[in-house]
Amino acid sequence: MNIFRLAGDLSHLAAIIILLIKIWKTRSCAGISGRSQVLFAIVFITRYLDLFTNFISAYNTAMKVFFLGSSIGTVYLMYLKFKATYDHNHDTFRIEFLLLPTALLSLVLNHEFSVMEILWTFSIYLESVAILPQLFMVSKTGEAESITSHYLFALGSYRGLYILNWIYRYYFEGFYDIIAIVAGCVQTILYCDFFYLYITKVLKGKKLQLPA
């Protein structure tokens, strides 16, 4: 565990907590893509099956349980408890365009052709693009609430910090995982446009509004 990975994990944790607080306090999931949240739940379920087969550390187990619980909880809040506030008219990204290619790619490009390994690989590929329905929704409505922007910033920073972690691990531990690295870079690149808007607008106290 190095400082970049810890910072990345904490950023990921912060993103999820920000989202849950937003939904819970405002009693609304307006502006949030339920489709992205379903994809994240699939990501965690397929990646953390090793909870039952491998013990890495108490930290690792606790984080996995939290990510699983919170992602399934978010889907529950959006599709059941606060269903009336879910803005489904603007959440129209076709997720099969993400699910099918990532599923196929994980069957072809993986470390080992085994069920657990393919599901892990699928979760890595799917995570890299799972935010697209949310970004699509923001671009469709042309704006995002500040709290949604903070959520997206924390979520994007997480994989960016992981890239620093991978550079560190490559130099100091001789460890690298090419699948995670390439997918993580793709994932971070998808946020670049948003990062620019966040820094130039939201941090200056303005609402995130896309140029018309």
């Binding site: 990975r5 990646r47 090793d50 491998n54 990510f67 470390h111 892990w120 992981y162 995982d177 995670a180």
Partner: peptide, 10 residues
């Protein structure tokens, strides 16, 4: 062999 190692990242 990296495929034998567990994925230790989240």
């Amino acid at each position: 062999d990296e495929t034998e190692e567990a994925h230790d990242e989240l």
